[in-house]
């Protein structure tokens, strides 16, 4: 992880809104502007392409924080996917994008042609996108640069997978987000959050997993502060319901 950067929200923008004029490339590199998701530079002007909040960080990186449900693959993002097809040397993995991603059977820790990784259809994979390009099908790997798994790989049986909007997934992986800390203080569980909006939870019993799912789903329609207040009553009602059943 890099150094901490200050991100400031500027305003709500709509597609087609003029953000700034950038006619020529600045000579001085300190004046460079970086354009993140939701912004496009065309004919010397920068325009928004998505509705959302325009944000800027301390090194002139502008981006739009928008609410979306459909995942568009981005290189180096961590995703949770489902194996849907065995293609001999590779597997097809559904990650929620318009094309399924491929993963080579060699792209796992300690996997070789002799000790190949066997995946079954329906297995869940937590991996990183190695190739994400609009003209090519996305490619997943479960190893890093040094052939280590670093937490990636197939997810064990007995967990619970559910989907959340992408902005919820992004806020959950933020290490300073108080929501998961508070949830972790209440229940014990392991959670894997993919940037594609798929969340995998495993806990001792189904009741705990269901209450985590309902608590996380609160973030879909309320802010973190509101969800922190509401969370305990939701968990209580799910747990009491499960105790009755």
């Amino acid at each position: 992880m890099g150094e901490s950067r200050h991100v400031s929200s500027m305003k709500v923008v709509l597609p087609g809104d003029l953000i700034m004029e950038l006619p020529v490339k600045p000579v001085d590199t300190s004046e460079n502007v970086f354009l993140g998701p939701g912004l496009r530079w065309k004919d010397g002007v920068v325009r928004a392409t998505r509705p959302g909040i325009l944000k800027k960080d301390s090194r002139n990186l502008y981006f739009i924080e928008s609410h979306q449900k459909r995942y568009i693959p981005q290189k180096r993002e961590f995703v949770v996917g489902t194996v849907i097809k065995n293609k001999g040397n590779s597997y097809l993995v559904d990650i929620g994008s318009h094309e399924p991603a491929t993963i080579s059977f060699l792209a796992f820790e300690n996997a070789s042609k002799k000790t190949r990784k066997d995946l079954r259809l329906g297995d869940l994979i937590y991996g990183q996108l190695l190739v994400a390009n609009k003209d090519m099908e996305p490619e997943l790997v479960c190893i890093d640069f040094y052939n280590r798994a670093v937490g990636m790989g197939t997810l064990p049986d007995g967990g619970l997978l559910f989907k959340v909007p992408l902005h919820v997934a992004r806020s959950l992986v933020n290490p300073s987000n108080p929501f998961l800390l508070e949830l972790g203080a209440r229940l014990s569980f392991s959670i894997v959050v993919g940037f594609n909006g798929r969340v995998w939870v495993k806990a001792k019993n189904m009741a705990d997993m269901t209450s985590v799912m309902h608590a996380v789903s609160l973030l879909e329609c309320m802010s973190t502060e509101e969800a922190l207040i509401k969370m305990h009553s939701v968990i209580d009602s799910v747990l009491s319901q499960c105790a009755v059943d």
Binding site: R5, V7, H67, S223
Partner: peptide
Amino acid sequence: YSSHGCIDGQNEADYDY
């Protein structure tokens, strides 16, 4: 977008990028 409490500067969180 303002209903999520992110526009009026409350949520200008420092986070690892």
